[in-house]
Design a protein around this nucleic acid. Structure first.
Lengths: 212, 212
DNA sequence: CTATATATACAAACCGGTTGGTATGTTGTC
DNA sequence: GACAACATACCAACCGGTTTGTATATATAG
C-alpha cells in the first residue's frame, strides 16, 4: 500500500536525521539507520538508491520543514503588526517561544553538519545547502531592508549584514548549546539580538539617549 | 632521534587537522592521514595509540594554538590602551587583521567539528571541547565585565551574554563563510559586532559627560 | 467475479572493499 | 646492544551496496 510505504520512508528519514545530528553523516552507517527505523537493508534501498540519495532527501526534507516553520511565524508576525520593525521583533519572539516549548533540547542544524562534512557530498548537495542558507538569510534581509527604509539605523549597517548576523548567531548558538548542554542558550542569544536591533532602530532608546 | 620523531608527529597532526576540517573526523581514515603525512601505519601507531588518542591530541593542540593567538592579541591590545573598551575593540581588530592576512581562507573551527560529531568521542574529549569553548567565552566575559564596571551599557546585558554572543557569531560565521565560500564574512561579522559594542558602550553615541 | 499480469514494498543473505588496529620486522642512533 | 623510530604484512570487523526472493496491492481483461 502507498500509505505503508510512505510511513516506512518517513520513519527512515526521521531516524536518520536524529542519528546524523547526533553523530554526523559519515559516522552514521546504514546499519545504524535501518536498525533504528526497524527495517531491513532491502527496505532502505527500495526507498533510497544510495546513501548519497539519502543525504539529498534528508537535507531537502530538513529545509522544507524549516522554511515551513519560518513562513508560519512570518504570517503570524505580519498579522500582528504592520510595522516592519515590530513584525521582526514578533517573528523572533515566535521563534523563541517555539524553542522554549520544545520538549527535547534543540538537536542542531543539519545545514551545519553538512557544511562541516561537505567533502563527503555531491556538489549539488553542497549547492543546495548553500542555497538554503542564503535563502534563510535573504528572508531576514528583506525584513531588515523594510525596516531600514522606514527608519535609518543608528549605525551604518546594511540589511544583508544584519541578516548574515542573525543567521550566524543562531548557527553558533546551536553549537554552543549542544556542547555546553545549555538548551536555553539559543533563545537567550535571540533575545540579545533583539536588544541589538532595538538599539539600532527603536525610537525609545534614541529619545532616551538624547535625554541621558 | 627525538627531533625527527617530533617532526613526524607534528606533520601527522597538521595533516590530520587539515583533513578533519575538510571532511569531518569519522570520514577521515587513518589511511588518508598517513598518506597525506607521507608516513606508514607503523609510524602513526608509534605516536598515537589509537584514533581516539589522535582525536584527543588533535583537539588539545588546536586549543593550545588557538589560545596562544588569543593571548598574543590580548597582550598587544592591552599594551595599546588602558581603557577596557578600547582594548576590546583593538583586540577584535587584531583578530580581523589576522583573518585578512590569512593566505588560504579560514578552514573552520575544530571545536565545531567535534561538537557535531560528539557521539564519536570519549566523554573526556567532549568535556575538553566544552571546557575550551567556555574558556574562550570566559576570556571575553572578563573583558566585558571590565567594560561594564566602567560604563553602564545602554541596554541591560550581562558580560556573560555578550561573551556568549561573540563566540556564537564567530562559530556561525565560520559555517556561513565555508558554505558560501565567502572568506571575508568572518571579519565582516566581527566588525558588525564591534558596531554593536560601540552602540552599547561608546560615549560618542551617548552623552559625553559621564566619564571624566 | 475472477484470473492474470504487473508493480510495490519489503526481507535476508551476501559481496568486495575499507576500516581501525596489531604483530613482527628493520633501521638508525647513542 | 639497547632503544626509539619507523616499515611491512596482515587480521577481524564493518562498510555501502547488490542480489535474490516473497508477500501484497492494483490494474486489466474475459
Amino acid at each position: 500500500m502507498a500509505a505503508r510505504g510512505h510511513d516506512t520512508k518517513e520513519r527512515i528519514l526521521k531516524e536518520a536525521q536524529a542519528l546524523v545530528l547526533k553523530r554526523g553523516f559519515s559516522a552514521t552507517s546504514l546499519d545504524n539507520i535501518i536498525q533504528a527505523a526497524g527495517v531491513t537493508k532491502g527496505a532502505f534501498f527500495h526507498h533510497f538508491k544510495s546513501k548519497d540519495d539519502l543525504a539529498r532527501q534528508l537535507i531537502e526534507r530538513f529545509a522544507e520543514l524549516d522554511f515551513a516553520l519560518f513562513e508560519e511565524w512570518d504570517r503570524r508576525a505580519d498579522a500582528l503588526s504592520d510595522d516592519p520593525y515590530q513584525a521582526l521583533i514578533l517573528f523572533l519572539k515566535l521563534f523563541e517561544e517555539w524553542l522554549d516549548n520544545l520538549r527535547q533540547p534543540f538537536a542542531g542544524c543539519l545545514f551545519a553538519v553538512y557544511v562541516y562534512e561537505s567533502n563527503l557530498f555531491e556538489p549539488e548537495v553542497n549547492a543546495y545547502v548553500k542555497k538554503s542558507l542564503e535563502h534563510w538569510q535573504q528572508f531576514y534581509e528583506r525584513k531588515f531592508a523594510a525596516i531600514i527604509a522606514e527608519r535609518p539605523p543608528k549605525l551604518e549597517v546594511s540589511a544583508a549584514e544584519l541578516a548574515e548576523s542573525i543567521v550566524a548567531i543562531l548557527e553558533g548558538a546551536f553549537i554552543l548549546a549542544r556542547s555546553g548542554e545549555k538548551p536555553d542558550l539559543i533563545a537567550r542569544q535571540s533575545r540579545l539580538f533583539r536588544g541589538y536591533v532595538k538599539l539600532l532602530f527603536d525610537e525609545d532608546t534614541r529619545s532616551r539617549d538624547a535625554v541621558a
